[in-house]
Amino acid sequence: MLNKTRISKKLIFSIVILTISFSSLFSEEAVEAGNKLLKEIDRNLTPESFESLKKIINIEPDGKEKEFVLYVLKKGNDKMVTTFLAPKSEIGRSTLRLDENMWLYIPNVGRPMRITSLQSVIGGIFNNSDIMQLDYSAEYDVIEMTDENNEKLLNLKAKTTSVAYDQLKMWVNTNHKTPSKIECYTASGMLIKTLHFKEIKDFGNGIIRPSVLETDSPLHKDYKAVMIYANIKPRKIDDEVFTLNYMDKIIDLRE
């Protein structure tokens, strides 16, 4: 009797250990696959080195809109620069991101000054980190990947505390391997904003991705902001373009 109990206890213990080992092995595999998928998503959204145009529309609860147009250059995981082409009052205002460093150049002020990812150079829901989004895989690690309604759901955790959002929930369109929705959370788990990726478009050069990004935020009820992408083109860019010296000349780099 005693022996039987001992054997069954040993059996249960072994099963539990095996289950934990398999599940951890499985989740490790899932995480690895998730991180691989995240890198694919990054490359599907933009080439490693590219130029593009972005229109940003801030929409107020009464329907009033304000539009901004930016010219964007990005290289590798950590370099991005943008400059305003519209409205006229903002022309030449440029932002530079080098990894976690961000600077703003205002033509009248005439010298770059450091800014942070949580500020917004345009006002409204999009902050600097949304406007100057680097590769997701450069800033986040996948900690969990699950299936949900024909989509993959990736739970992402920021690699450092300097990233604007501590956690992301990313729903991935498995056909195009691009995000369909991203929820952005603080470290305490508070939802800050939701990004909705819409209108998949062929931009040429093998780039097929959502062309419209809509956002709303529980912190700004009834306000909305939209980002429309255009003219995404791979481009060879010298590293020196991503320096403070170049911030007043970004507008001249359009081809």
């Binding site: 145009l53 229109k55 209108e199 429309i228 255009a230 507008i251």
Partner: peptide, 17 residues
């Protein structure tokens, strides 16, 4: 609602404000 005529932002040799 979400139209974007990006050709109007093509580079010109002269610019002024």
């Amino acid at each position: 609602e979400y139209s974007f005529d990006f050709e109007e932002f093509e580079k010109k040799p002269y610019e002024f404000i």
